[in-house]
Nucleic acid binder design. Structure first.
Lengths: 93, 93
DNA sequence: TGATTATATAGCTAAATAGCTAAATAGTAA
DNA sequence: TTACTATTTAGCTATTTAGCTATATAATCA
């Protein structure tokens, strides 16, 4: 599993962006409007997510639309479950 | 969900420690021996995990035994699944 | 007590990160 | 072209982090 996905998901602002995008694609401006950070700050978070391949962007006129790359997100969750989930973790003593 | 858990899990060395502890409790020295880092470096990672409550430690003579706090780990995974997993993520276009 | 072993803490450096403002880029429209 | 809007990139600062070595702490044993 790619380290960049873990780093991307370790920030609370970026996790909120992912949650926003679960509801459907949004422009950079729409996303930024949900936060109290300066707009370039949110743009930077978007580029971290893009770098981790967790989102993809597409220009539409003057707007740039971001959408979730659900594949990567699902693969990450699957990896986590495989490595840390389930198993009989009953070695109490 | 506690931010410290995300930060703790975002480091590859710490994730490997968690995986080691899934196999059962281990002393700090045993854990350190699995890595090429200096012993204090691994000790620091252990304290990050302890701070996130992902592991607990217990002195046994001169040794300090670390064990996984499976509750926190499971809660983290459950949180992730709840927030990012499942759902009909079929908004392709 | 002093010596030994296991581990943590202190103190440092280099690198990464998140925030900001200001400037650049890209598209649209007059 | 100029003007306007949406967004990114540049460049900065402050903070955090991961690594190191050296030192401190704690338990055991002679």
């Amino acid at each position: 599993m790619n380290e960049s996905v873990f780093k991307a998901m370790s920030d609370s602002t970026r996790r909120k962006i992912i949650e926003l995008l679960k509801d459907g694609p949004k422009t950079a401006g729409e996303i930024a409007s949900h936060f109290s950070h300066a707009q370039p700050t949110v743009s930077r978070h978007l580029s971290v997510l893009k770098n981790a391949n967790l989102v993809v962007d597409q220009r539409e006129g003057t707007f740039i639309v971001y959408r979730l790359n659900t594949t990567i997100l699902q693969e990450w969750l699957a990896w986590l479950l495989e490595h840390f989930g389930g198993g009989d973790l009953d070695e109490k003593e």
